Simulated assay, not measured.
Amino acid sequence: MKISKEKSEENRVALLEAASRLFRQKGIDGVGVAEISKAAGLTHGALYAHFASKEALAAAALAWGMEQGNAKLYTGTVDGEPDLERFLSDYLSVDNRDEYADHCAMAAAASEIGRQDSVTSATFTEGYMVLVRAFERRVAANNPGVDALDTAMGIVAAMVGALSVARATAKARPEVSAQVLRGVRLMIDNAVGKPV
């Protein structure tokens, strides 16, 4: 039985949503295609009709998850630019730290990406650079003469790293975890030249 283009796209999105959520919760290597198919309410056959391999699905799910995350960057704007204050307050929060499945695909996958294929690495890099460019514009506007690109690279790396460290320390030392989030936020505010 042939399915419509609309239903096929609906199935593809269901697979991307399920894979993105499960990869963030359990890691790319911690989830199999059977679990992803089941979570999407589909069969293995449906999964392989859309994605040639688990690696192809991982790259597409990472891209989809980062698109969703980066869209949050642009849900509110200030003078046509992303509302970085709101974005950082959400990103470097305890709620974000504790909710793997619904937040930053980069922080959830950063330590795994180096073990994945070049397509997945390229996908990660593209999503990373979306954030870098947003911060680069702000740094350049507030700090003439500063290398805005290098500073923005450091800011985004610090954000992703801080969320990863905060997650790693939360169970044993929640006060350390919270301090990591606060400390990186202070560092970012100082690097940008004024609070963002």
Rank of each mutant, 00 (worst) to 15 (best):
residue 1 M to R: 13
residue 3 I to F: 02
residue 4 S to A: 14
residue 4 S to Q: 03
residue 5 K to R: 14
residue 8 S to H: 13
residue 8 S to E: 12
residue 8 S to V: 07
residue 11 N to E: 15
residue 12 R to C: 07
residue 14 A to Q: 09
residue 16 L to I: 09
residue 20 S to T: 07
residue 20 S to M: 01
residue 20 S to C: 12
residue 20 S to R: 06
residue 23 F to Y: 15
residue 24 R to Y: 06
residue 26 K to R: 10
residue 26 K to L: 04
residue 28 I to H: 08
residue 28 I to Q: 01
residue 35 E to N: 03
residue 35 E to P: 05
residue 36 I to W: 06
residue 38 K to S: 14
residue 38 K to Y: 07
residue 39 A to Y: 11
residue 40 A to H: 06
residue 40 A to Q: 02
residue 41 G to M: 05
residue 44 H to P: 02
residue 47 L to S: 07
residue 48 Y to V: 03
residue 49 A to E: 12
residue 50 H to M: 04
residue 51 F to N: 01
residue 51 F to K: 06
residue 52 A to T: 11
residue 52 A to N: 06
residue 53 S to H: 07
residue 54 K to T: 08
residue 57 L to Q: 11
residue 58 A to Q: 04
residue 64 W to P: 05
residue 67 E to M: 07
residue 67 E to C: 02
residue 69 G to Y: 15
residue 70 N to Y: 08
residue 71 A to M: 10
residue 72 K to Y: 14
residue 73 L to G: 09
residue 73 L to C: 01
residue 74 Y to W: 15
residue 75 T to S: 11
residue 75 T to R: 15
residue 75 T to W: 06
residue 77 T to A: 10
residue 79 D to I: 03
residue 83 D to P: 04
residue 85 E to F: 02
residue 86 R to L: 13
residue 87 F to T: 01
residue 90 D to M: 12
residue 92 L to R: 10
residue 94 V to Q: 12
residue 94 V to G: 08
residue 95 D to P: 04
residue 95 D to T: 13
residue 96 N to H: 14
residue 96 N to V: 15
residue 102 D to A: 10
residue 102 D to G: 13
residue 108 A to H: 06
residue 110 A to P: 00
residue 111 S to H: 03
residue 113 I to S: 03
residue 113 I to G: 01
residue 119 V to P: 00
residue 120 T to D: 05
residue 121 S to G: 15
residue 121 S to L: 08
residue 121 S to P: 00
residue 125 T to K: 05
residue 131 L to N: 04
residue 131 L to R: 15
residue 134 A to W: 05
residue 135 F to G: 01
residue 135 F to I: 10
residue 136 E to W: 00
residue 138 R to M: 08
residue 139 V to I: 10
residue 140 A to I: 09
residue 142 N to Y: 03
residue 145 G to L: 11
residue 148 A to H: 01
residue 149 L to P: 00
residue 152 A to R: 05
residue 154 G to M: 12
residue 155 I to Q: 11
residue 156 V to D: 06
residue 157 A to Q: 08
residue 159 M to E: 13
residue 160 V to C: 05
residue 162 A to C: 12
residue 169 T to P: 00
residue 170 A to Y: 14
residue 170 A to G: 00
residue 172 A to K: 13
residue 174 P to Q: 08
residue 175 E to F: 06
residue 178 A to H: 06
residue 178 A to G: 02
residue 179 Q to Y: 05
residue 186 L to R: 14
residue 187 M to S: 09
residue 189 D to M: 12
residue 195 P to D: 10
residue 196 V to P: 05
